[in-house]
């Protein structure tokens, strides 16, 4: 192929060239903006869809949960433990000293109403679901929850006490919309 050495044949005067270059620049910029606008929906479509977002919050009627009982509900694809704590359990949670705790946290910071403990039921070690919610399940050495996968023990505030888990069971965002109904998420 004829190898030109990059010399530009001067087709128009200097002013004409600048005008042409500006036009090409403007067109290019316009096209680039258009390209970005086109790309956006294809990225956004991977974000959660409307039906997924609709299940981002869940309202739970807790009127049937007796003192000392606990239930499991599904929220954003993971289990949430809701325990109606006894006075003994609340006192035990408050009695713990910061030195005893692997991940120090006050019980009052973890429960808006002391008798209702609401936790995301996923072990902070490697993601198994700890036992201790349903009737008959072992609660571990600290009377809270016990994860059978690698032996993490959680106390009556859901805090990690013994075992490989590094952090306390997470507390999800929640609000009491009435005495009987809590909205999670």
């Amino acid at each position: 192929m004829a190898d030109t050495d990059g010399a530009q044949a001067p087709e128009h005067g200097h002013e004409g060239e600048t005008r042409r270059d500006f036009l090409q620049l403007a067109t290019g910029a316009f096209a680039a903006v258009g390209g970005a606008a086109v790309a956006w929906p294809f990225i956004q479509q991977m974000n959660p869809a409307a039906d997924t977002l609709a299940l981002a919050t869940v309202e739970v009627d807790i009127s049937a949960v007796e003192v000392g009982q606990a239930i499991k509900v599904k929220w954003r694809g993971v289990p949430v433990f809701i325990r109606h704590r006894t006075k003994a359990e609340i006192d035990a949670a408050n009695a713990a000293k910061p030195g005893d705790l692997i991940d120090p946290e006050e019980d009052s910071a973890r429960a808006k109403k002391p008798e209702w403990l609401i936790l995301v039921g996923v072990c902070t070690h490697l993601g198994c679901i700890p036992l201790g919610t349903s009737q008959g399940e072992t609660k571990g050495e600290f009377n809270g929850w016990f994860c059978p996968c690698h032996g993490s023990h959680y106390d009556t505030s859901g805090r990690i006490r013994k075992g490989p888990a590094p952090k306390n069971l997470p507390v999800p965002e929640y609000t009491f919309i009435s005495d009987n109904v809590v909205k999670i998420g």
């Binding site: 087709e11 042409r20 036009l23 067109t27 316009f30 096209a31 258009g34």
Partner: peptide, 20 residues
């Protein structure tokens, strides 16, 4: 509207480039 503007610009650029 965007495409009308962009296509218009492209037409002018095309005519300029093809002028020779």
């Amino acid at each position: 509207l965007f495409l009308l503007v962009l296509t218009g610009l492209l037409y002018v650029v095309k005519r300029r480039i093809w002028a020779d």
